[in-house]
Amino acid sequence: MILDPEQLYKIANLAKLEIAEDTVQPLVEDLSRILSMVEQLNGVETEAVWPMAHPLNATQRLRQDRVTEPDKRTELQSIAPAVEDALYLVPKVIE
């Protein structure tokens, strides 16, 4: 499978990555090679195989519905870059 630069930009945008222009071609080539390698899986007969959601052959353990976490806001906010009135601050985002 060959990835084109337009697809690369789309993926980068979805992942919020900035791509320098001179890295576009090498990235397209690398990613295309990775995709080709993974593409071999398309040749495997999977008709009778259950899709695997997880590599461990186990099922989800459940938690009792109890409040077990105390308020650690002060501690948690001490590592945040910007906090005011107990809110985490981020650059203005508005629809």
Binding site: A82, E84, D85, A86, L87, Y88, L89, V90, P91, K92, V93, I94
Partner: peptide, 13 residues
């Protein structure tokens, strides 16, 4: 997201 509380920032609860 609280957009109207700060001029420069969005506050997150």
């Amino acid at each position: 997201s609280i957009h109207d509380k700060f001029a420069q920032y969005t506050g997150i609860d």
